[in-house]
Amino acid sequence: MSSKLNQMIASKYFSFFVTLALFVILYGAGMAIYKGFMRPQVFLNLFIDNAALIIVTIGITFTLIIAGIDLSVGAVLALVCMVLAWLLANTGIPLGLAVLLVLVMGTVFGAVQGYIITKFDLQPFIITLAGMFFCRGLTAVISQDTIQIVNPDWVALASYRIDLGVGFISIGAVVALIMIAIAAIVLGFTKFGRAVFAIGGSESSAALMGLPVFRTKVMVYAISGFCASMGGLAYSLIMLTGYNLHGLGMEMDAIASSVIGGTLLTGGVGFIPGALIGVLIQGVILTFISFQGTLSAWWTKIVVGALLCVFIIMQALITEQKSKLSSKRSMEDNNNPPQAATAAQ
């Protein structure tokens, strides 16, 4: 029995199942307390309201897997919202081109960060922290006031709802779900994805194996930048404005979601569907607070921070347990060779 439990804890997906169980329990509790939780639309709203966060979390998960971090995502999101609003308000360029421009901008920004980090061997957090301040500042340079987006096409896109029979979802949510699927496939089933995990496990081993470490790392940060700017577009669809304080502290929410969803901060382990559940848990907490009515929105941040702590500490304990297990297994190896294969996982 205990060996089965140990095996379960050592499984790659243990964290994911804990998260899933937590989500189900939270949602069940919500249904028990508030009747409103029963409506399917409340569930779908989780996706609509958190579309931007879901997309940003995908990018963050990539950087966390290679044992890096990207603190600039919230600021990039704000910058994208602002540039899009500014372009639409002050220039005559068509909507499609403006969207393409901001996407390219975000991706290039991410790639530049990745290049500086990798080329000069600098700590990712300091460079992306600088990137965060840079983007926030730049957003304020463009405009210190809110810029409204009045472009009819973008407004129409923002209010477009896809009917699912039991409820509806927005364009942003659909984009988020598609990106989740793509990211899961890229990480799970492509050469690039395997290289990402290998670098996260051990960068020098990956380099010795002949994997393109430099290119992969830069690409990971570029992906993070791309996801942040995609998230910016989704955010812009909800807010329809460009404003300096959009997405403040979102990097923390995204990192929290990713970690709650089973990404190890030490790198090498990550699971995209887990990250999605991580975001949804935060969404449920927010829904709780809005159903409750009297609690201040600041409680979300505090609860998420506490949750993040719990999960990080759980991770630390699991990692310790795992290393204990594997050393035990390697001692048993002589008697029982086939088990070594499972232990290696």
Binding site: F133, G137, V141, N244
Partner: peptide
């Protein structure tokens, strides 16, 4: 709120 641009450049 524009100042961080300069400081970020300095950090890098």
């Amino acid at each position: 709120d524009q100042l961080p641009v300069v400081k970020a450049a300095a950090v890098i």
